[in-house]
């Protein structure tokens, strides 16, 4: 078997492992929201942390980010920064309403 074919076999094994992890994490998300009855803060935190882990797995392995060039990382770094700025605006508005400033 050539090196290329062996490498593809390894990739496919990784994809299947990631797929299994994503399914398990989905079931954990649903189970934790239905049966754990956490207060709203921790409940949101758990759901978002699991979603972030799942998104990271998709981006790193299915989208090949783990072995991608620096230029793509730079584009994404900038995007993530502005994405959080975008989310921060409503959060800060809500905070200023609460504090009355």
């Amino acid at each position: 078997m050539s090196n290329h074919a062996e490498e593809m076999d390894r990739h496919i094994r990784t994809y299947l492992l990631v797929f299994g992890s994503l399914i398990v994490l989905t079931l954990i998300t649903v189970a934790s929201s239905q049966f754990l009855h956490l207060p709203i803060g921790p409940h949101i935190a758990v759901a978002l942390i699991i979603a972030t882990i799942k998104a990271t797995l998709v981006a790193c392995f299915f989208m090949h980010l783990i072995s991608e060039r620096k230029l793509i990382m730079a584009v994404l770094g900038l995007t993530v920064f502005f994405f959080f700025v975008l989310l921060l605006v409503p959060a800060m508005t809500a905070l200023s309403h609460e504090t009355g400033h």
Binding site: S33, H43, I44, A47, I50, A51, K54, A55, V58
Partner: peptide, 14 residues
């Protein structure tokens, strides 16, 4: 798929 991964908990579970 990635967008749905966030939409699902945000809209259905929280």
């Amino acid at each position: 798929d990635l967008v749905w991964i966030f939409l699902f908990p945000v809209l259905y579970l929280m």
